[in-house]
Nucleic acid binder design. Structure first.
Lengths: 129, 129
DNA sequence: TATTGTTATACTCTATAACTATA
DNA sequence: TATAGTTATAGAGTATAACAATA
């Protein structure tokens, strides 16, 4: 499991590496994409990232104009995050590449086998973990 | 895959945490256990650990008297590593606990499902990865 | 008083280069 | 010259505490 996770991580890097996206950054973009206007802190909670460590990550994405960060109208302590147009393009591009690479990675399994694998994996830790 | 790997890692920690064994240390002990007299550098290669980083890890295990480290007779540059009696007990104890925890983690799957899962996982990355 | 984001800081893990002693 | 282990060091990633602004 650990070995495969490393394999997927390496694969992720080679898939989106030239986009300059690390796994964490992609995680942030994709959470924000699915929840426009979400708070910085909530994104961190969703990904298990400390508030303190979110700062530089979000800074990086804002500097690269992939994220739009605004003071929230209802709570002026908080920041609302949204994808910019470039951010959306970036996420779409990354998702496409990741799919391609995963298909290659799973090429030894037939489609029904892949479905079975995903079904089994999704049931692990559903109750206890 | 990444989420599950984290789950297994966390589980590992809670299983053997009070033995003071991190995943790397367990890895080293179990490689040495299976290959008594193996070189320090070879253990590193097997686990993907840089030579430089092996030093303090092996020091730690020797200090805790889980590993026995001797200059190799045939090549006096190298160190031969072996488990001490305490080291063997430690590995056995850890393996037992890890099995228990993994059983709990996989408790939502029937025995044939577990076998199927392991079979599918083992086929990923076998060719290309 | 509690919470959001920030800063500073420390600790672990990992990676690289230069050193020693053997080969 | 090449290799095994060592040392020093630098860079990520992650964790905690203290602070300002706001609630």
């Amino acid at each position: 499991m650990r070995r495969l996770s490393t394999l997927f991580a390496t694969d992720f890097a080679s898939a989106v590496g030239d986009l300059g996206l690390r796994q964490v950054l992609f995680g942030i973009l994709s959470i924000v994409g699915g929840n426009p206007g979400i708070n910085q802190g909530e994104v961190g909670k969703a990904l298990g990232i400390q508030r303190a460590n979110m700062v530089s990550l979000v800074n990086e994405l804002v500097d690269r104009e992939l994220l739009d960060r605004r003071v929230a109208a209802e709570d002026r302590r908080a920041f609302e995050l949204r994808l910019t147009a470039a951010g959306e393009r970036c996420v779409d591009e990354a998702i496409g590449r990741i799919r391609q690479h995963e298909d290659k990675l799973l090429s030894d399994l037939s489609p029904p086998e892949r479905a079975k694998l995903i079904q089994l994996l999704s049931r692990i830790g559903a109750s206890g973990g």
